[in-house]
């Protein structure tokens, strides 16, 4: 039994097939990448897997249980967390508070205790704070803890999102372009972090445009084009697949024609 199994997932937006009949599976500690030209449906696929979009067809199995169409906060309880391509940071909150929010499932409790600042409420918050501080240190943001998140650089916010997602102690982690907009050093750091997390047994599903990174760290690659899976396999096989080369060259030609 695979940890995460995607069976024929598809969705339409106003008659347009954004994703159609995509299937693959992943196991503990595996890094699987989804690649494809812009508009291939990668983020849409992510949104279905993480419960943001309700799939039009197909099934999503997490640890052998059908979780198709389950709300994101319920999927989070089952160990699935994610980051976003276009950052979704709580801008007005401090960096530390952003990270603590990742511990919501652990720190939540009686609202009454929270309103009255009872010891139980303080203990919950304190435990979450300690965890968050450790996580921030791990992604290199310990010194920025008390800053307002909105003031951070793009690369730092990317790492903050990863920290927040890791706070859930996920079994499956979805990373949507974690290295986009990052410089070479930052990319390498994120690269190392992903490998480290996977080594701890977390299954990581990655969307990434940095092909060097994808080829280097992925165990398995799924290629999408026009919403459909056109190839999958290990990095070496996929990079030599004619359909994949055509899809990529095709878009490059189209981009040249546009410019």
């Amino acid at each position: 039994m695979s940890l995460l199994e995607i069976k024929g997932l598809g969705i339409e937006f106003g008659g347009l097939r954004a994703v159609h009949d995509v299937s693959f599976a992943m196991n503990e500690g595996e890094i699987v990448s989804v690649i494809g030209p812009n508009g291939a449906g990668k983020t849409t696929l992510f949104n279905m897997i993480s419960g943001v979009y309700l799939p039009g067809s197909g099934k999503l199995m997490l640890e052998g249980k059908d979780v198709t169409g389950m709300e994101p906060h319920l999927l989070a309880r089952r160990g699935l967390s994610r980051t976003f391509q276009n950052l979704q940071i709580f801008q007005q909150m401090t960096v530390l508070d952003n990270a603590i929010t990742g511990y919501h499932l652990q720190e939540r409790g009686s609202v009454l205790a929270d309103l009255l600042n009872l010891p139980s409420s303080r203990h919950r918050a304190e435990a979450a704070r300690e965890g968050a501080q450790k996580l921030l240190a791990r992604v290199g943001l310990a010194r920025a803890a008390e800053q307002e998140a909105g003031n951070l650089s793009y690369g730092a916010l990317k790492r903050l999102e990863i920290a927040r997602a890791l706070a859930l102690s996920p079994r499956v982690l979805l990373l949507d372009e974690p290295a986009a907009g990052c410089n070479a050093v930052e990319t390498e750091e994120i690269d190392a972090l992903i490998a480290e997390v996977a080594a701890e047994g977390v299954a990581i599903l990655l969307v990434e445009h940095d092909m060097k990174m994808v080829m280097r760290i992925s165990k398995h690659i799924v290629v999408l084009d026009h919403g459909e899976k056109i190839a999958e396999g290990d990095p070496a096989t996929v990079s030599q697949n004619p359909a994949v080369i055509a899809a990529y060259l095709g878009t490059q030609e189209a981009e040249h024609a546009d410019s």
């Binding site: 943001v52 709580f90 007005q92 919501h104 009255l116 918050a125 859930l168």
Partner: peptide, 30 residues
């Protein structure tokens, strides 16, 4: 009471859903 709430787990979750509802949901906030 309101100031207690602000810094509490519930208050943090409220401020989070204010900041980004979709991100709040993905960290498990109902």
């Amino acid at each position: 009471v309101a100031l207690n709430l602000y810094d509490s787990p519930t208050g943090r979750a409220l401020r989070a859903l204010h900041g980004s509802e979709i991100a709040a949901r993905t960290v498990g906030i109902d």
